[in-house]
């Protein structure tokens, strides 16, 4: 996007992949609505657990096509933890799809995308903590990277000052933060079920299962083999900084309800029809465990101003 020196740099909005296990009907309805939302980029795919099969790879590709037809830039997201050969098999199919670009959430995916000779995006679980790493991946075909969630604006500023040409930067600006991955399914464990007979119990928790301390302070959310922050990261109050750092894309993580309102608030602030302070109030009710922005400010992730 060409802009003159006086105009404000405006990031584009992206809808991240749905982290939770939703039913087929819910996924279909969500993406049917997303076609009309004020968001330019949509990431699609199962990133957490290969046992979640509300959508087949074919369903994802069909949804991708529909969203592309409605004017969205579509990126297919890969699983973040790849262990089994069956998972590699699906990964190969995704990386060789030939139509849509791919967000690699594991270096195995990066390797396959290099083989295929296609440019790629990297998700927040790829550890790009410095310019040396960014340059190696840029030489390999990286076109956009997502800042790992534990890194601060100070680190981002240094990365932006010398980022390789042609590489765009995306920041997770709103949503629960992906904090950890395991071989263990914590949701199944919370129901006293073994992982190999989990009875797909994640379906019962469309926004994950809350873990609180013994004094009832919200801590994390169990989402199958993934652990998410209980608080919602919200960088809307820092929009001016994100602009000044010339961040190209702001990622909004889907939630079970009201994702559209979140996108609307960001879009309105970007368009200048409202300001982050006025937009904050209606958002407050959408984060059941409150907001946090500690990582962005170089503090503990759970911290908020």
């Amino acid at each position: 996007m060409k802009q003159d020196a006086l105009s404000v740099h405006n990031p584009r909005l992206a809808l991240g992949p749905v982290p939770y296990y939703w039913s087929r009907d819910d996924l279909k309805a969500f993406y049917a609505r997303a076609a009309g939302w004020p968001v330019e980029i949509v990431y699609l795919g199962e990133t957490v657990c290969s046992k979640r099969r509300s959508f087949s790879t074919g369903d994802w590709l069909e949804t991708a096509q529909a969203l592309q037809d409605s004017g969205k830039e579509v990126v297919l997201s890969t699983l973040a933890l790849i262990e089994a050969e069956s998972e590699l098999k699906s990964l190969r199919r995704l990386c060789a799809n030939g139509r849509f670009s791919v967000e690699a959430n594991d270096l195995g995916a990066v390797r396959l995308l290099i083989d295929a000779g296609v440019p790629f995006v990297t998700g927040p679980t790829l550890n790009i903590y410095n310019l040396g790493t960014l340059r190696v991946l840029a030489r390999s075909g990286l076109r956009r990277w997502v800042l790992p969630v534990e890194l601060s604006r100070a680190t981002l500023a240094e990365m932006q000052a010398a980022r390789p040409e042609g590489v765009q930067t995306e920041v997770l600006a709103y949503g629960r933060l992906p904090l950890a991955l395991s071989a263990r399914c914590f949701t199944a464990r919370s129901r006293n079920l073994p992982k190999d007979d989990c009875q797909y119990c994640c379906l019962d928790y469309p926004e994950g299962r809350l873990v609180a301390t013994q004094e009832d302070a919200p801590f994390v959310v169990l989402n199958g083999i993934q652990t998410l922050s209980a608080t919602t990261c919200n960088l809307l109050p820092h929009l001016d900084e994100l602009r000044a750092l010339r961040v190209d894309v702001l990622r909004i993580i889907p939630q079970a309800n009201q994702t559209e309102r979140v996108l609307g608030a960001f879009a309105a602030c970007l368009a200048g029809t409202t300001d982050p302070e006025s937009a904050a109030e209606p958002l407050a009710g959408l984060a059941p465990q409150g907001f946090a922005d500690g990582y962005w400010r170089g503090e503990a992730g759970i911290a908020s101003v």
């Binding site: 679980t125 950890a180 503990a300």
Partner: peptide, 21 residues
């Protein structure tokens, strides 16, 4: 470590410092 090493931020989420950083 029950989490995948190098991909666990629980420590920095609570206390600002993680194995990675």
């Amino acid at each position: 470590c029950v989490m995948v090493e190098g991909r666990c931020l629980l420590s920095s989420y609570a206390a600002g410092k993680s194995p990675n950083t």
